[in-house]
Design a protein around this nucleic acid. Structure first.
Lengths: 225, 225
DNA sequence: TACCTTTGCGTCGGATTAACACAAAGAGTA
DNA sequence: TACTCTTTGTGTTAATCCGACGCAAAGGTA
């Protein structure tokens, strides 16, 4: 397949803001560049779009080959077009963000080489290219999205407790939410289903285990901050 | 300026969903193609991205040269990447939508040739390429946006009445909204300012003329459907 | 058993809002 | 002028929503 006109076209890439949540921390996955420009700086993972590829295919390729991840939640964010955003020449980036459960993927720390690492979103280094602003926009989008659409479960295990979901929301939205009101809203929305099981092991009362309700009726969901 | 790597890149274009409102109707601007593919079919206006150009510059270029429009509200919508979306070859489209006041632009019908025309959004012909789905997504975005951010005034004259704003919302959202509750919400949000003047000429009570409040405090705006 | 912490469930008062009534304004008409 | 008709501006009220908070049940420890 070819482009159909002979003008020169800008380079076209996808960049990925991969969010992960574990130990009550929201993190993002960064790559340490081994070559110029921005050698030794941390950047978002990305790849050039191949001629027959869709954006999401290119994203999956990055997630699979560079990061060893499969089947993650993926959403197109925005296309970045500053002419000088890449010092090597004109390059467009179609940014996406992904939500993954770090405990389900194999990024532990060793296998994939030491140039990939999770960073707490509050302790990010200055990123190369225009990736700071891509990240900021992704975070803003995630914060907005989670208030009107149930994407939180993408970051949790298949079975999770109410306090875990509550903490996730507080962490992402960077605020405090009344535990009991949160509970009521979530349950009313039928976002999740009580499995009847309980999480054992803790010292105190064992919380119920919930799972995501896939048959969610639309527009029933609204968490205010 | 050049792309910095030697791989072949897809063609890159912008496409525009131009919304206009007049006579209580929401319309979209379409172009009649004069050449294959999709000869004689209606499509969204668009243009290939030039090497030094930003998306919005390319959009402005289209709006100016093809449609004679200046200074319109413009927002990036989504990037469309289906490999077969253009039969001529691989082409990516970064879709935008624009809000214009038809009475302020010179698209009347004569000057710009007969291949440009406004279509009521409920009476659209089948469009070429994947422009049907681009349009649908733009409409969805506009409907969503107008409920939480004041973009309506972009479609109206500088001075407008409460009933005019009310009708605009009903038309875009395709629903009925209680006149008096709508009024209260809009006024509480400080979205608009009463100029003290009145619209003369009608047989009945002359409505107040309002203008948009540019110093709008954020997040004060929410119209529910 | 007493105690501590966490989790599940309920209540209550204030704020929001949807549904509706009504008065004021403007023009025509007898 | 008085009456009618329509549209626009303003207020009221009842139902609902929501935030702040109380309290008991569950589970472990001393």
């Amino acid at each position: 397949m070819k482009p159909f006109h002979s003008y020169q076209n800008p380079s076209l890439a996808v960049d990925l803001v991969v969010f992960g949540y574990s130990q009550q921390q929201l993190s993002v996955l960064l790559l340490n560049r081994k070559e110029a420009p921005f050698k030794d700086r941390w950047v978002l993972p990305g790849a050039f779009l191949q001629m027959e590829e869709r954006f999401k295919d290119a994203c999956s390729r990055v997630l699979k080959t560079k990061l060893g991840m499969d089947d993650v939640y993926l959403e197109q964010l925005y296309s970045f077009d500053e002419p000088d955003r890449d010092p090597r020449g004109r390059a467009i980036s179609v940014a996406h963000y992904a939500l993954v459960n770090p405990s389900k993927v194999a990024i532990a720390a060793g296998s994939m080489a030491n140039d990939v690492s999770w960073f707490n979103i509050n302790e990010l280094p200055a990123l190369g290219f225009d990736h700071d602003s891509i990240f900021q926009q992704a975070l803003q989008r995630l914060r907005s999205k989670i208030t009107y659409f149930p994407v939180g479960f993408e970051l949790l295990d298949d079975l999770f407790t109410m306090p875990e979901l509550h903490e996730l929301y507080e962490c992402i939205l960077d605020t405090t939410i009344d535990r009991r009101n949160f509970r009521r809203k979530i349950l009313d929305s039928e976002y999740i289903i009580n499995t009847g099981k309980k999480r054992e092991g803790s010292q105190n009362r064992h919380p119920d285990l919930y799972k995501f309700n896939k048959k969610l009726k639309k527009n029933s969901f609204q968490i205010n901050v």
